[in-house]
Nucleic acid binder design. Structure first.
Lengths: 345, 345
DNA sequence: GTGAAAGCGCTAACAC
DNA sequence: GTGTTAGCGCTTTCAC
């Protein structure tokens, strides 16, 4: 087995050092490093050999200072351990990496204040752009950090503010509509919803879609069938209990987040309800990497890959052409993935 | 609703500009910014007001260049969408953030070559440290990037090399031992293992633990009961098929990764085997955020929070005292979480 | 207490 | 073709 001293051959030489070694000047060496013209072929060869010999690596910090670019993009998310988020982050990292960007990951743990703290640090770090799934209720607090030198793209949830900005999101109204239509078409009339915070666009729009579907099917909207949670499992559980209490005749429930779906199912099972025999369930963002969840849950699945690709595309555009890039909101369609958590009635 | 021009109040002024405004010099303003002594109280007050007025933010790029520190730590992982990894990354980000570090996330997608590519870029970016769950088979290729200016901590899988380095890992031998002991104690004699790549320490050591448990229980080790996968679901499926073919009398299987466990279960179910009635299964790293997987799988769960905390602690130490910090390997115990995928025999 | 000067490592405009 | 110079924004001696 080969023996190594910890630490390999990095000598971390500078342009100047190498130039001195060769009796040249930093400019010339720089020209070679950056493959610029106007260097005598022989000189170039000499320099290249020295670069190799000293294992030269350009110091990006110095370059950043000069170019006022860092090739770093921050990705601010509420919870990296959530499937929907980590799937998107994975693609973001991959696609943006191919364009030479590195990703600074910031997990706010769903705490709005942390978004501000992060933005403060990140701007000092001179990042080129920020991709953010915000949970903030105070768009002012966030927007004040954005200036023309920063590319910004929102995804998942949007700030509730009257300014144009770039965003890539799922058409939440349409998705919910699809989910609830599906239940209506199966013959359900008493359909509950476990919605979410109405001051977040995701929560708000998903409720709209539910109402629209009912209206389209000429089913009356009843407040008794609407419960508002906070995206987390416990609230799904609590909401489900409430809904079941209030509506003994409810035959289906639509829950607008994965964790609330899990909570709802546990509440139903605890009350002795079988899924889908006694109650049908449609979820949102329910990922099952195991493929072993039973019953297999019918759920809305967002187009994570394309969300990430479009976010990447737009942040790159936004960084390249800060002044003129037209701010736009891109809506993607989601899919209803049919499992066996719903039955016809 | 308030109206905003996109872009808030950032004026991105420099020390020099502010100094000029006040008829002072950058040094003095710098002293105030950095809360240094030797500034007349009145001057300080004046400067503070100006800093506020112009919303001064120090340019970290410039500071980095000067201080040769960036307060950035790279985290290189094979797959951020895997539960074990994202749980650890979440804690790392949180703990290291509290110490003023930002995290650059690098997902290698299990491709060893990408580790080298990343390290190359990261070193140019002058990161202070790197935390890495390597998948590389050529430790040389990685080690050559590590010098005394870089804090390095390994976790999960270790490079197979004769150099001392910092690492925090689960005691794989002991964990496997625990898993297989459990099966033995339930009375199983014909216990299969779906192990993993023997050139990765994780794969290698988990097989050792299996053998040790059998030996301790005076059960003969049979090659027929050993299948080697690659951590992924398909291989778990394939290995399970092979094991079942070769050993019709096999009553239990231990799979050393979550995805292989899922694959194995599907293969078993496809062959009409009920779990745990016909075959008992113990998995590794099987996370079920839904709590709805049935049967609930008995599995080894690593102590992710403490792994992340110890990694953080050690990378910080390693960065602070590069020369003298003693390189050490920290072994943590895992837990066997009992579900209902195993039965006594 | 404050300023002047140098320099972190690199690049680019301008000279020669 | 190559060197000289200046400067990105900041910190830190060293003078005064």
């Amino acid at each position: 087995m080969t023996y190594y001293a910890f630490g390999g051959f990095r000598l971390s030489s500078t342009l100047k050092e190498i130039a001195k070694e060769l009796g040249l000047t930093a400019s010339t060496v720089s020209r070679v490093v950056n493959s610029k013209e106007y260097v005598k072929p022989e000189t170039r060869k000499l320099v290249l050999k020295a670069l190799e010999k000293y294992n030269y690596m350009p110091n990006q910090t110095a370059r950043n200072l000069r170019s006022k670019k860092t090739n770093m993009i921050a990705v601010i998310v509420p919870d990296i351990s959530e499937g929907f988020i980590s799937n998107i982050v994975k693609v973001l990292e991959h696609v943006l990496g191919e364009s030479g960007y590195s990703i600074i990951l910031c997990d706010t743990n769903e705490e709005p204040e942390k978004e501000e703290q992060y933005l403060n640090i990140l701007l000092q770090k001179q990042i080129d752009g920020v991709i953010i799934a915000t949970v903030s209720k105070k768009p002012d607090a966030i927007f004040k950090y954005f200036d023309k030198n920063l590319g910004v793209v929102f995804f998942d949830n949007l700030p509730n503010i009257n300014v144009s900005f770039d965003a890539v999101i799922t058409d939440n109204v349409k998705s919910s509509n699809m989910a609830v239509n599906y239940l209506c078409d199966l013959g359900h009339k008493k359909i509950g919803i476990i919605a979410a915070k109405q001051d977040e666009t995701t929560g708000f729009e998903r409720l709209i879609g539910y109402k629209k579907a009912l209206t389209d099917h000429e089913i009356e909207i009843s407040d008794n069938l609407i419960a508002i949670g906070d995206f987390k499992e416990q609230s799904g559980y609590d909401c489900m209990k409430t809904l079941m209490n209030r509506n003994p005749d409810m035959t289906a429930v639509y829950a607008v987040s994965s964790k609330m779906t899990f909570g709802a199912i546990k509440a139903a099972q605890e009350n002795g309800k079988k899924i889908p025999d006694d109650i049908s369930i449609v979820g949102f963002d329910v990922h099952d990497p195991s493929g072993l969840i039973c019953p297999c849950i019918t759920t809305i699945i967002q187009d994570e890959v394309n969300i990430a690709k479009l976010v990447s595309e737009n942040i790159i555009k936004g960084i390249a052409d800060k002044e003129n890039s037209v701010k736009k909101k891109i809506l993607l369609e989601a899919n209803l993935v049919i499992g066996n958590s719903c039955r016809a009635i």
